[in-house]
Amino acid sequence: MTTDKQTRVAVLLGSTRAGSLNRRIAEHLRDHAPAGVTVDVVEGLDDVPFYTEELDGETAPASASALRQAVASADRVLAVTPEYNGTMPAVLNNAIDWLSRPYGQGAIVGKPFAAIGATPTPYGGKWSHEHARHSATIAGAVVVDGIVVDVAALEGDPLADEASVQRLLGALDDLVAHQVEAAVA
């Protein structure tokens, strides 16, 4: 049985720098997504105010509502992020906070989730990706086990290295292929 349904992947960028390596990775995944997969890089995370209940609800800021809509309309969520001081950047943590609300019903609830990316350190973003997966789990996402791509960009551009590119594309393939188990009623 074949289907014409596109699988939509929303990418949350941990770096807000226009020319960042992680933005380039996200754009490479978007531009080289396999047939049947649409990768949308969610823009404007740096415009979303820090989460507080006083801002949420019927009058949530437009930037937060756009973030929620982008993830709600996606089938999968992929964080592509560097590591700042041994953890995920505040902009990514804040996005997950907004996506987790309202509690138990947020836009990220039930969505397959993975975190990948690169840093110029020898650790490749290991802790950032672990923290993003942990936070997304608490927020209600379904973190896909086994997707670990921590690229240390110490010796050049990982997008110029075919093995690194294949690992990144393989992570996207694994996220798309993940089947969410139906809840038992």
Score class of each variant (00 low, 15 high):
27 E>F: 03
27 E>L: 11
28 H>F: 12
29 L>T: 06
29 L>C: 02
31 D>Y: 06
31 D>Q: 05
32 H>W: 02
33 A>C: 12
34 P>Q: 13
34 P>W: 05
36 G>E: 07
36 G>A: 09
37 V>L: 09
38 T>Y: 05
40 D>S: 04
41 V>D: 07
42 V>D: 09
44 G>C: 14
44 G>H: 09
45 L>E: 03
46 D>L: 06
48 V>S: 01
49 P>A: 05
51 Y>I: 02
52 T>E: 15
52 T>L: 14
54 E>F: 10
54 E>D: 15
56 D>C: 02
57 G>V: 02
57 G>P: 03
57 G>I: 07
58 E>Q: 14
58 E>W: 06
58 E>D: 14
59 T>A: 15
60 A>V: 06
60 A>P: 07
61 P>G: 02
61 P>M: 06
63 S>V: 02
64 A>D: 00
66 A>G: 06
66 A>N: 04
67 L>W: 01
67 L>E: 04
68 R>V: 06
68 R>T: 08
68 R>P: 06
70 A>G: 02
72 A>Q: 12
72 A>P: 00
74 A>K: 05
74 A>T: 08
77 V>D: 10
78 L>N: 07
79 A>N: 01
80 V>R: 09
81 T>N: 02
81 T>A: 09
81 T>F: 03
82 P>C: 11
82 P>F: 01
82 P>V: 05
83 E>F: 04
84 Y>R: 13
85 N>D: 13
85 N>Y: 01
86 G>Y: 11
87 T>S: 15
88 M>Y: 14
88 M>F: 15
88 M>P: 11
89 P>G: 11
90 A>K: 10
91 V>M: 07
91 V>Y: 13
91 V>I: 15
94 N>D: 13
94 N>V: 03
95 A>M: 09
95 A>I: 14
97 D>G: 10
97 D>L: 10
98 W>Q: 11
101 R>G: 10
102 P>M: 06
103 Y>Q: 12
104 G>C: 08
104 G>S: 12
105 Q>A: 15
106 G>Q: 04
106 G>L: 02
107 A>I: 07
109 V>L: 10
109 V>G: 00
109 V>E: 09
110 G>Q: 07
110 G>Y: 01
111 K>Y: 09
114 A>D: 14
115 A>L: 11
115 A>D: 12
116 I>R: 09
116 I>P: 04
118 A>Q: 04
119 T>E: 09
120 P>N: 11
120 P>A: 14
121 T>P: 01
121 T>L: 12
121 T>V: 01
122 P>H: 07
122 P>M: 13
124 G>W: 03
125 G>P: 03
129 H>A: 15
130 E>P: 00
131 H>C: 07
131 H>D: 04
131 H>L: 12
132 A>W: 01
133 R>A: 11
135 S>G: 02
135 S>A: 15
136 A>D: 01
136 A>G: 00
138 I>L: 15
138 I>C: 00
139 A>S: 03
139 A>L: 00
140 G>K: 00
141 A>M: 04
142 V>I: 14
143 V>N: 00
